[in-house]
């Protein structure tokens, strides 16, 4: 194995390796996460965020317009404070509603934005007033049982405990 062949092989190897990394970065993963410079931050308080996680998408009309950047607990209102960054290209009125939605029955949770009618636009650091919490499946089932129990408590004695 002479020097030139060796260098050539190592060159091929390094180029292929970097190619594989590029393939992973561009084709497999999404490098197009909203860049800090190209985005603005908005916060919203939710009573219950369910299973929402940092980095979850923020969608409007089904289009990804941003990502959740952080989630914290506000111990004055006892609510969850969600900060998310929105793409600079899209602007929303200040009376936009943020709701926590689920894709499919058991899919991941994301924030859905629904624009209001206000003409003033959201800017960096604004807080959304109108929010709708996550639908927590356990609560939903609880409510369902509760209403069933109220409909006909005499049929099933055990459901009385719910009251």
């Amino acid at each position: 194995m002479n020097r030139a062949m060796l260098d050539l092989w190592v060159g091929i190897f390094v180029v292929a390796g970097i190619g594989a990394l590029m393939f992973l970065a561009l084709k497999v993963g999404s490098m197009n996460t909203v860049d800090a410079k190209e985005s603005y931050q908005v916060t919203a308080l939710f009573e219950n965020i369910g299973g929402l996680k940092a980095r979850a998408p923020v969608k409007s009309a089904g289009v990804v317009v941003g990502r959740v950047s952080s989630i914290s607990f506000d111990d004055k209102t006892y609510e969850a404070e969600v900060t998310f960054s929105l793409d600079k290209r899209y602007s929303f009125p200040t009376d936009t509603t943020a709701s926590i939605l689920t894709s499919g029955l058991l899919g991941e949770q994301y924030i859905g934005l629904e624009a209001g009618g206000e003409s003033v636009k959201l800017k960096n650091g604004d807080r959304l007033k109108l929010t709708q919490s996550a639908v927590v499946l356990e609560n939903l089932i609880g409510q369902f049982l509760y209403s069933k129990a109220q409909e006909g408590p005499q049929q099933e004695g055990t459901t009385n405990e719910v009251q």
Binding site: A16, G17, A20, L21, L24, V28
Partner: peptide
Amino acid sequence: LLAALFSA
């Protein structure tokens, strides 16, 4: 580089 090639 090897790990990236493996994954790819």
